[in-house]
Simulated assay, not measured.
Amino acid sequence: MENHRVTVELRHRTALDPEIRQDLLDVYADVRAPLLHLPNYRVAVFAERLDRHAVEPGFGLVLGYDGELPVGYAYGNTVEAGDRYWARMTERLPDGYTDTPALAVKEIGVRTPWRGTGTARRIHDALLAERAEDRVTLLVNPLAGDGKVQRLYEAWGYRAFNTQQPSPHSPRLTAMIRPTR
């Protein structure tokens, strides 16, 4: 798989046109295939979230392509004080914690053949590279991959700071944060 790292082209977007949307949905369906039977992971439910996120402030997306095949993605939005992202945290946040905007990475996904090649990290870092926010946050299911996904984010410099359950059908997620740079 070493050749995938070299051949993956990263494409940045700040809007969601129909072709890009379909590419992202195709990768999502492949990445989340084992979970698609669960209500919160269905493609239609993800598509609704994606459409909502795409019109929220500070939307940014990076898609990775091997030739014309979309192989991975990461996207997020700016979250400011008062955003529902912060309001859904389980524990009360310290005073001033949300005073400066942060990038909330809403989704990261990479197709199986490109996992372990550095593609996810390249896509993630490309998303962060063009951001003005000082901090980046994300949510992870601590059970994903028997904890492997959370450990990967820890290796990328994230640290757990809270938990939240974004919807009644979602699992309790670990909220993680790190400096953008």
Rank of each mutant, 00 (worst) to 15 (best):
R11V: 15
Y65L: 09
R111F: 07
V45M: 08
V79Y: 02
S170I: 08
G58R: 06
V45S: 13
G145A: 00
E68Y: 10
E107L: 06
L152Q: 02
E56K: 12
N3F: 13
H37C: 07
A33C: 09
L173V: 00
G76L: 03
L138G: 03
R84A: 12
T100S: 15
Y158W: 05
R42A: 15
R42I: 05
P101D: 10
L50P: 00
M89E: 06
R115S: 09
L173M: 13
G118P: 03
L61A: 10
E130H: 13
R135A: 01
V149C: 11
H53F: 06
G147T: 09
G67H: 10
A144Y: 01
H4R: 02
V62Q: 02
R181A: 13
A74F: 05
N40I: 09
E154W: 04
S167T: 15
E130F: 07
R32Y: 15
W156K: 03
Y41M: 10
M1G: 13
W114S: 09
L50H: 02
R13M: 14
Q165P: 09
R21P: 01
R49M: 07
P70Y: 03
L38Q: 15
V27F: 11
K106L: 11
R172D: 08
R181C: 02
V31S: 03
V110D: 01
N141D: 15
Y153C: 08
D99L: 08
D83V: 05
P18T: 05
F59G: 02
R121K: 15
R52V: 12
G147E: 10
Y153M: 03
N3W: 13
N162A: 10
D83T: 08
L103K: 05
L139N: 13
D51S: 15
Y73L: 10
Y75K: 11
A129S: 13
G157K: 11
R131D: 06
V55P: 01
M1Y: 14
R151A: 13
A132R: 14
E56S: 12
L138S: 00
T174A: 07
M176H: 03
T117P: 02
L103E: 00
N40G: 04
V140E: 06
I20Y: 01
A132F: 10
Y41I: 11
A126N: 04
D26H: 10
T100R: 14
L127N: 06
E107G: 04
V55F: 09
T98R: 09
A33T: 12
M1W: 12
D23L: 11
G72Q: 07
P179F: 10
P34I: 12
L103G: 01
F161D: 01
F161S: 00
N141Q: 03
E56I: 05
L138I: 06
L61S: 11
N77R: 10
L24V: 12
R122F: 07
G157M: 06
A144N: 07
V55S: 11
Y65I: 11
D30A: 13
R49L: 09
P34Q: 14
R32H: 14
N3C: 14
R49K: 12
E48F: 06
Q165A: 13
P101A: 15
W114T: 03
H53C: 07
Q150I: 04
T180V: 12
P70R: 02
T117V: 08
A160E: 13
P34K: 13
R42N: 06
E56T: 14
P101F: 04
D17C: 04
I20F: 08
V43W: 02
L139W: 01
Y85E: 00
G96H: 01
P171D: 09
Y158L: 04
